[in-house]
Write a protein that binds this DNA or RNA. Structure first.
Lengths: 197, 197
DNA sequence: GACCCAATCTTAACGCTGTAAATATAAAGG
DNA sequence: CCTTTATATTTACAGCGTTAAGATTGGGTC
């Protein structure tokens, strides 16, 4: 399934850019960010390695594009969870996303793959925007002079918990789910006394 | 300063194992986990690359040893902070450690460098032990049926906050410090109502 | 419909990496 | 002093990301 139907067996691929991103996500879930390999991606797509350079500046750019997809997917999932009982449901959705796409989530919060390149700052900007969204969602619910601190607090718990869950630090799946719910419940105690509503 | 004084300019190094670990930590702070390179380490120590294999099974083993050092240092620092006002001081110390050794901290909570090798599970064990220590420290302070959830809660906030700080998501150093203190204060609200003491 | 152009992909090659094998050197023990 | 053993070296290999140069193709124009 590497080549589009109409282009199967032909010189041109069809939609190589998309195929690369798909394979990258696959690899990411199989082995985490360190498993991201341009040559392996090309191999899976059924194309020579340098072909990727017509669609991306380099491997980092692929990682960056995938991370961008990830932030989009996460935002969508969180939007879908807003119908629930507010913060708790969104927390569960957030962590659910991280668990379902652990490699992707790790990439979204890594310093790129090289730790020095400019992809790091691009990721940082995406994270900042995600945080701004959270802040905005929280704004009408709490005293204005505390929104920043509370948003940061919520993000810290959720992010930390998501990473611990991903790292297998919470035990098996069922046990993990239980612990996550408990922690989120405790988290709520800190802000329920000052809810505006 | 790569070779011990008494062995300067000689064939044998003196204490290559320690020199390797030191250089690895240096590299880690300069470029994070992806900057860990066996050849670069050897270059800095002033030794050929394969020399390292007499002291470590492979690069992953070096990373693992450095991470182990890290967990030891962190535990020591947290012990030193126990004289303060309990949880808040320990939280500050924890995050201070992460900020001062960001590359090391990231390594300690990464899935190794290969994401598939057995170093991942070794790291997981170290983290589990660190958590067990926290749990034990918390035990006499809270109701016994909640220690697990509360310990996890505290770790989540602290870990998440540490990572956000490291990622530069909290702004400049002075502003970051302020926000960290605020978040830790909020965190405390969730458990102060049920303190045993 | 033939032609050119631009986009896309390929092969070949470079310098880098981690690691293995074979070899040289030095330190330790009889 | 000679041998053994630990330690380091040189050489080599496969794989990586990336660049440069050439092949193949589809789309737009006369």
């Amino acid at each position: 399934m590497s080549r589009t139907e109409q282009h199967e067996g032909t010189y041109h691929h069809g939609d190589l850019r998309k195929a690369i991103l798909d394979s990258a996500r696959e690899l990411l879930e199989e082995g985490g960010p360190p498993a991201l390999s341009l040559r392996e991606i090309a191999r899976r797509v059924g194309v020579s390695a340098p072909a990727a350079y017509h669609h991306f500046r380099n491997l980092e750019a692929i990682a960056q594009a995938v991370a961008e997809q990830g932030f989009g997917d996460l935002a969508a999932k969180l939007d879908g969870a807003r119908s629930g009982d507010g913060m708790h449901a969104m927390g569960m959705a957030y962590i659910g996303f991280a668990q379902a796409n652990s490699g992707l989530y790790r990439l979204m919060f890594s310093d790129g793959l090289a730790a020095k390149s400019d992809a790091g700052s691009a990721l940082q900007a995406m994270r900042a925007q995600a945080f701004a969204t959270l802040r905005k969602a929280l704004e009408p619910q709490v005293p204005p002079d505390q929104t920043q601190a509370l948003a940061l607090y919520l993000w810290s718990v959720t992010h930390g918990l998501a990473l611990l869950a991903i790292d297998g630090q919470l035990g098996g799946a069922e046990r993990a789910q239980e612990q996550i719910a408990q922690v989120l419940e405790v988290t709520g105690r800190a802000l329920s006394p000052l809810a505006t509503t």
